[in-house]
Design a protein around this nucleic acid. Sequence first.
DNA 1: ATTATTATCAATAATATTGAAGGATTTTCA
DNA 2: TGAAAATCCTTCAATATTATTGATAATAAT
Lengths: 306, 306
Amino acid sequence: MKLTLRQMEIFLNVVASGHLTNVAKEMKLSQSAISMSIKELETILGKPVFDRINKKLVLNEVGRAFYKEIDPIYKKLSDIEYEFKNSENKGIIRVGASTTIVDYLMPTIICSYMSSYPDVKITLKEGNTKEITQMIQEGAIDVGFVEGLVFEPDVIKEKIGVDELWVVSASPKFNKGCYIDELAKEKWILREEGSGTREVFLNYIKDKVDKLNIFLELGHTESIKSILVNRECLTCISKISVENEIKEGKFYHVDVKNFDCKRDFLMIYHKDKYHSTLFDKFVYFSKKLMLQMLDTEQYNRSKYIK
Amino acid sequence: MKLTLRQMEIFLNVVASGHLTNVAKEMKLSQSAISMSIKELETILGKPVFDRINKKLVLNEVGRAFYKEIDPIYKKLSDIEYEFKNSENKGIIRVGASTTIVDYLMPTIICSYMSSYPDVKITLKEGNTKEITQMIQEGAIDVGFVEGLVFEPDVIKEKIGVDELWVVSASPKFNKGCYIDELAKEKWILREEGSGTREVFLNYIKDKVDKLNIFLELGHTESIKSILVNRECLTCISKISVENEIKEGKFYHVDVKNFDCKRDFLMIYHKDKYHSTLFDKFVYFSKKLMLQMLDTEQYNRSKYIK
DNA sequence: ATTATTATCAATAATATTGAAGGATTTTCA
DNA sequence: TGAAAATCCTTCAATATTATTGATAATAAT
């Protein structure tokens, strides 16, 4: 036999009022229902919690300790139930994103979102497009942000922006118009094999460039940026990862003619995903912010308007 | 509609195992019972807590937060229930005692008891015999210790020892055999009017002494003792309140011939009191300890035996 | 005596659970 | 590969269990 919440509720009310009859009225139940519920509770515990002194039920030493334990817990449970029934903004959203997005977009989104919805917690996982997609399929994350293409049928994808790859350098030497094939024999630093950024770039130039002089391959964008500083090298990376440095004059966006290398940023989620208000709000919020951040021009303009 | 513990139990099991079928087996229920229970929980909360991804039920962002809140509380409730079902020694005993007992006997009893039963809490209330008896009648305390007489029919009384009143002084001047009437004109300090100790003493000597020279009345035994020190005064108080000081030689027990002033110490409780194991243990324990403390001779002997 | 209160019991209402049927998806194996 | 089997959840009506009622008795207070 196990205690029920109902029994606890009735018990607490009886403690509060001291009379079964009052409680019965308050709870719109018959007096015998209350009496039997209390008796059942005592049977389950194996001992009385009330002394029947005169017509009153007075907590005894056991009941008193029981009350002290149960009362705060019952209240807390009620609060939780109320919160979840009434609050739209309570939950834990698990987000997954691929490398570039994790590093350069997610921090802004998460900080901004959490300040608007303090009751929502977010956990962030990193992975490449394939891994993130699989997490969606397995239900390991609620929503994913990836660069690259997704074809799985049970995964819904929404284009949330365009990722632009820029040729970047720290040296002013390249800071004049030119064509991509003229740069082929310069020293290039690229991401490692398997990286989406690398693949897209190489695929894009394969018709125009015979052989690219790749002199260094690194696993992280930040590593590339560190090496790039003060050296006469070139790289091709996502514009969002170097925007700040270019603004500061640390790097140059090399003006390569006829170079327009783009790919989509996607938001993905499972087709069977239940769209809670919470989920929808997060999706709406992050899509909006993504678009702002990815369209720099529009983003800067909106700053002035504000 | 309200959530039930059962629904939470099933919910937690489903979260743990991920499959309704497993949970149904574990809980020895049909699988449809589990399904409907979860559905009911979701209806009550107003939103799903699981995403039905493939055949699995995967917690969604709402369910995850709900789980995080409910899980520890459910465990705690289970622990409490178990504790109260199985532990004999869990409770809060409310004890009332009259002045002398509160000051000189209860501290020892409570400390000693609590070291034997760490899960039991004790609250102590002070009052005169009449007040303590009334508290018993109203169920405001579980057990009382009083000096004096109790006649109420719904209060059970057990004699637990004899209170002896001693004539005490700090001056060696009185440290020789004498009769009470010879001391009547000395300076007496007594407790205030209404005090049991005072009434018993005055009633006891009323036939032997014409007029007692009461030069000071004080509300507390400890105040009397403070005044007594280094002064040529007398008082008549409970032996247990001055035993230590007499042992230390600070006060003398004046050897008054034919002076044998006693009254009973009583333990009282309500006739309808449910005797939980806890209650019985406390009663047994404190009776034993009281007897030891009140029979000084036996008490000291027992010290040596140990 | 009358009122107020709790306890108890059988009857009944409400709720939880079952068992069978169905749908959707994955696994098995020819 | 593709059809059959297995797995797993959902739904629904039937049933078992549990909670609640209404009437009645018992007890103490006014």
